[in-house]
Design a protein around this nucleic acid. Structure first.
Lengths: 142, 142
DNA sequence: TAACAATAGTTGTCATGCTAATTATTGTAA
DNA sequence: TTACAATAATTAGCATGACAACTATTGTTA
């Protein structure tokens, strides 16, 4: 089928498979976390005190999605909201100690998966790959 | 933020933006269809008489998702299920005339979006891009 | 042939993604 | 200062994606 050669199809498929591998890895490590929760947890961990809007921008997700993911991270005890003192519409989001431990535990796995993906791909091909991705993003920006 | 340079992040972002552009295009054309519905409709149109399992494989989606997308396509009158005569567990899925018209209307738009994405990307870079995607898919297969 | 395994499709549950609408707060301009 | 616009976050509704459980049918094997 012709669609299987189209680049959007290949991208969807690669992403989906990577997501499945990640999810399986988290499961086998006995950690109950989704890939999306991981992404947001990592951003919060890296940013400490970001507002939800800022997290929204980094994660490239929309506000309602980020609200709910943070709700779930709070339920799991990995993250907490603190009312901003300057702007009462805002929260500052931080990781708890458990959240930090979770990042420390999962980050090596995530890095390993990322490496697994690019096995047998040359440095120069990877550079081209990233450049094309950047161009695609630009081309769809307007 | 370091995560923004990682290839999985760039891939997610490129896909998401492309999806948004597609959705906007469909909306402006006055067609009420999601990108996922488009993918499945196109596969059905191209395959005529495929079973849902086969569609599942082509679309790289899972069975419940395909069931529900087909439900929606049936509701919109673009597709119908016909019980298979050899195997009563199966349906054969076909496009209606309206479905065919819809494909004829949308396909040029989809192709144009695909072209828009790769503007200013050389032939050779695009070849490398696809090769890397194929390798990624392989690397995450096991 | 009878019991069991495998397959095709559906349904339910939960999480995510998108859109629109809502609340609370802050910024701005007459 | 008051009225209005903009911003931050939430809520609700719908579609999709992943997973588990289920029904109906077909295949296989003792």
């Amino acid at each position: 089928m012709e669609i299987e050669q189209a680049y959007p199809y290949l991208m969807e498929r690669a992403i989906r498979q990577m997501r499945m591998v990640s999810q399986q890895t988290f499961l086998q490590a006995g950690v109950d976390i989704t890939v999306e929760q991981w992404v947001v947890l990592y951003i919060i961990h890296d940013g400490q005190g970001l507002s939800q809007v800022e997290i929204t921008e980094f994660a490239f997700k929309d506000a309602p999605t980020v609200t709910r993911i943070i709700d779930n991270l709070v339920k799991k005890g990995w993250v907490y909201r603190q009312m901003s003192s300057e702007d009462r519409r805002k929260f500052e989001i931080y990781t708890t100690n458990e959240g930090k431990m979770m990042v420390k535990k999962l980050l090596p796995m995530v890095m390993a998966i990322r490496e697994q993906g690019i096995v047998n791909i040359s440095e120069s091909d990877l550079r081209v790959f990233k450049r094309v991705l950047g161009r695609l993003i630009e081309n769809f920006e307007k």
